[in-house]
Design a protein around this nucleic acid. Structure first.
Lengths: 251, 251
DNA sequence: CTGCGGCCTTGATTCACATCAAGGTGATCC
DNA sequence: GGATCACCTTGATGTGAATCAAGGCCGCAG
């Protein structure tokens, strides 16, 4: 569909049953998803509890705010957004999730998903039933630590976003998001300078606390400054250093 | 010091050695700190790993951004703020921590504290060494679950703040904070309508993404609307329902 | 008592972003 | 082909909160 998807990721778009049989041991994302050095039979045990279901189509929900919490999920391909609906019906996007990333952990707190998650494009998902995960964690110290770390990481990410929303200008926010996506692409061995945004301008604005119009204007400004080239959802970062300077953050 | 502190909390201000010997089993905060039904000898085991050190004085740091992560902390008395310093030297308050609440979990992710924590007033703290906690968690499923839940709760709180910063007006933000403090007081069996703010206007503004002047104006406005009475740091909520309406949230 | 510094309040002005409004592009469907 | 719709861009205007500026209050030191 797009030149940026690697072979294994794009398989989700022409699903075949063999694909569902993939296991953690040979998954090319396991360095992201499981950055710990699990012994190989540990990986096998983890593998046994993970369920690989059929791909989610664009706009389908993985779970909804208020659903009973059962599992956390790992993205195998595609992108999802997590969002909350405020009482007056507006939507707040709380995160975007790329392949290798874990979502759904906000539901552990009171056994109910605190946000909804929907696919921004066709997506393949690994489901990890939480009770099994808990039992396994008690037996595998590495795994327990890994999940504590994953959750802690989610906390630090959220705090980063809090700071961004509270202290940074529209330019800085959009620049920071572009850099974040660039970094996450690099982790997956994709181009850090050329990619296709899976989300709409509305979603970006929503995530960053800005209106669509402002996001659009920021992109125009960045283009005028020759920091990046924008063609609808295709992004090419022309001047990473300049972009970092605009973001005004240490990354 | 203030009429609102219960007896056991105010002990921190005239510390005596006996106080440090208090254990989780008889701590009046354990319904908040350990809302799970631990067997009594489980509580004893947890108790054994917890260290109670001498009180923190006002403005003293519990830990600083960049410090090696060793422990998480429970507040026994007093209040702390957690904050990050941005690269351009400004400060972002990421949370306030009242008695019974746990902080420091953002350090688990990469073994380094991602934020600093300092006492807003004299505070007594329980230190929980993380490696011991991990070991004990592997043996006590209830405890493991409890910590997963605590971390998940921190995530949902942060997402709440993200939404507040991104979608709500100055009035709504301040009203929401007042209601949050009120609720947390109620949990500790203190008055939900009358309390002393432990933090300055600067800290409030910083937390809510507003300037001091704006916070001050909001308080004046609320007073004019007879939602609450403000006398410097003393707050009396006169119209909880009206305040909830101003906050424009479902709580 | 007086002077000083930290903290809070209030008013006047400015500004970044929201809102309102209009038009453009491209995909899909008949 | 043309119609429709979702999505994006650009311009003109409005506004909520920031900034700038000044003064008040209170605890503390001398």
């Amino acid at each position: 569909m797009t030149i940026h998807l690697s072979q294994s990721e794009s398989q989700a778009q022409k699903p075949c049953n063999h694909d569902y049989q993939a296991n953690c041991g040979n998954c090319r994302l396991n360095s992201i998803c499981l950055p710990l050095a699990l012994e190989s039979d540990d990986v096998q045990q983890l593998d046994d509890i993970i369920q690989r279901s059929k791909p989610l189509q664009k706009n389908q929900h993985l779970y909804r705010e208020g659903d009973e919490f059962q599992s956390v999920f790992a993205v195998r391909s595609g992108t999802l957004k997590a969002y909350k609906t405020t009482d007056d019906g507006r939507e707040q996007v709380t995160g975007f999730y790329f392949p290798g990333e874990i979502l759904g952990m906000d539901g552990i707190s009171n056994n109910t998903h605190a946000s909804s998650a929907k696919a921004l494009e066709t997506a393949a998902i690994c489901e990890i039933p939480f009770t099994s995960l808990e039992k396994l964690s008690a037996l595998m110290p590495n795994l327990q630590r890994h999940f504590f770390q994953l959750m802690s990481h989610e906390i630090t990410e959220d705090q980063q976003l809090i700071t961004l929303l509270s202290k940074n200008s529209a330019d800085e926010r959009v620049a920071a998001l572009m850099l974040s996506i660039s970094t996450r692409n690099a982790r997956r061995k994709l181009s850090p300078t050329q990619f296709r945004l899976p989300m709409s301008r509305v979603d970006i604005g929503n995530y960053l606390g800005l209106t669509v119009e402002t996001v659009s204007r920021v992109f125009s400004r960045m283009q005028k400054l020759e920091l990046l080239r924008v063609d609808n959802k295709e992004i090419e970062i022309l001047d990473p250093q300049g972009l970092r300077k605009m973001a005004n953050l240490g990354n």
